[in-house]
């Protein structure tokens, strides 16, 4: 882990916009991490990293034991199990309760207005959609990617002491959270925590849900209340 990624967190929300570049960079990293986890199956490099004492130790503070979730003698078998669980949770589509698309949550259809709005948001922020993007723009992983890139931009401008530009990217994040991510991300994540077939993804759901809840607090926004899943 490089020293440049050491944590430097300001404790109050009002000071957040004035916080140093590391705050934004760390937030960007969390978003990028979640984006990666939601968008694709685990690969061996990421698995090894998450199993390492260095990385896993940080998650232990929240009662999440990735070393336990990802334990096993054979790495390939673990990857295989995770790939099945990923498919169960996000891909098969037999039960759209886990559909990872904002449009499905809002309109019941794939590639709806939300997809277009997220695409437009990328343009508005002078960011292009990720190259070879395998998903619709309103996939949770892509929405996390956008937030990650906005936070990175904010961090870059803060590092260069270009406060106005940094503020601008901060506002983009606030708007995107308000209009998109917080409208469905916490609820979706909570469902993943409860219903994912593998403890790793249950814990990812928990992390995602809590992170978005805290983002809502810090940006002084309201997230949609979590509605208990109805089994009817």
């Amino acid at each position: 882990m490089s020293s440049s990624k050491q944590v430097n967190v300001r404790p109050t929300s009002t000071e957040m916009a004035e916080s140093g570049p590391c705050e934004a960079e760390n937030r960007a990293n969390v978003y990028e991490f979640l984006s990666r986890i939601f968008l694709e199956e685990m690969d061996s490099g990421l698995l090894q990293a998450l199993q390492s004492d260095e990385v896993a130790g940080i998650f232990l503070d929240w009662g999440i034991n990735f070393q336990e979730d990802l334990a096993g003698e054979n790495q390939n078998e673990i990857l295989e199990q995770l790939a099945h669980a990923y498919c169960d949770t996000f891909v098969t589509g037999e039960d759209p309760v886990f559909s990872p698309y904002e449009s499905v949550w809002k309109t019941g259809c794939l590639e709806g207005k939300s997809t277009l709005l997220v695409e437009e948001f990328y343009t508005k922020c002078s960011l292009g959609l990720p190259k070879n993007c395998p998903e619709f723009a309103d996939h949770l992983g892509i929405e996390f990617d956008l937030m990650s890139r906005l936070a990175k931009k904010e961090a870059e401008f803060r590092l260069a002491a270009q406060t106005a530009q940094a503020e601008n990217y901060h506002k983009f994040q606030q708007a995107f959270l308000k209009n998109h991510l917080l409208a469905w991300g916490p609820e979706f994540s909570a469902k993943i925590e409860r219903w994912a077939s593998h403890p790793f993804y249950q814990h990812i759901g928990k992390l995602s849900c809590e992170f978005l809840r805290m983002e809502a607090e810090e940006f002084e926004l309201e997230s949609e209340p979590y509605m208990e899943f109805s089994e009817n």
């Binding site: 882990m1 990624k5 050491q6 944590v7 967190v9 705050e23 960079e25 760390n26 937030r27 960007a28 990293n29 969390v30 990028e32 991490f33 979640l34 260095e54 990385v55 940080i58 998650f59 503070d61 992390l207 992170f211």
Partner: peptide, 8 residues
């Protein structure tokens, strides 16, 4: 937020 470094 410490996760940021771990995630990175």
């Amino acid at each position: 937020i410490q996760l940021g470094s771990a995630a990175g």
